[in-house]
């Protein structure tokens, strides 16, 4: 286990006992990653804020949803953020007819370095590894994965957009997930 993950476990344990300081520490560690993810998925700052708000509130109210036996806190929490972001995007897209969300978003608030965040080094290291693993995927696998994960699209939507059979989308997604898993395990 990485040091960063071990520290998270301790913060989570204290948070479960109602320790607000531990909550703040987890916020300090993950708010930037969570907000960056939520913004990339939702494409809107106001929605991204709601997602991050809801995810941290859920963490505070029901900390026992995290089971340390099933993986590190980091992946649990960021998966939760992703889950909520996709939820929100789907809902928004039904509530109003949304124009195509930009696949490649503009930088959030100009290039103001004050908006860049100083990230815990262990997260930065992992980020580099994840990008390395993603880059190792065949481009057609990476494409379906990104459309699903960051685009919040269903497999049926992806098949329609790319003009390929649904079965192919499923196969590529599965292959991509397996390769990523193997690559990430190998790197770490």
């Amino acid at each position: 286990m990485r040091d960063g993950d071990r520290d998270d476990l301790e913060f989570h344990r204290r948070l479960s006992e109602g320790d607000r300081g531990a909550f703040d520490e987890l916020y300090r560690r993950y708010a930037g990653a969570a907000y960056g993810l939520a913004y990339r998925v939702t494409g809107q700052q106001i929605l991204a804020q709601d997602v991050v708000h809801d995810a941290f509130m859920a963490l505070w109210r029901t900390p026992e949803a995290f089971d340390p036996a099933r993986g590190p806190f980091r992946t649990f929490f960021l998966a939760l953020v992703h889950h909520r972001a996709v939820d929100l995007v789907r809902r928004e897209s039904r509530l109003r007819a949304r124009s195509e969300r930009a696949a490649n978003l503009e930088p959030l608030v100009g290039e103001d370095p004050a908006d860049a965040i100083a990230e815990e080094s262990y997260l930065g290291v992992r980020r580099k590894e994840v990008r390395e693993a993603l880059a190792s995927l065949p481009s057609e696998q990476r494409q379906v994965l990104e459309m699903a994960y960051f685009g919040g699209k269903t497999q049926v939507q992806i098949a329609e957009e790319l003009g390929i059979p649904l079965g192919t989308v499923k196969t590529r997604t599965f292959a991509a997930m397996r390769k990523l898993r193997a690559a990430l395990e190998e790197i770490s």
Binding site: A34, Y35, G36, Y39, P72, L78, L145, R181
Partner: peptide, 20 residues
């Protein structure tokens, strides 16, 4: 569990941004 962990890891491909 492994796939779930991958969905958490994938989040790191997004650049971190300081929330308001």
């Amino acid at each position: 569990d492994a796939f779930q962990a991958v969905t958490g890891e994938l989040s790191l491909d997004a650049d971190p941004v300081r929330p308001p």
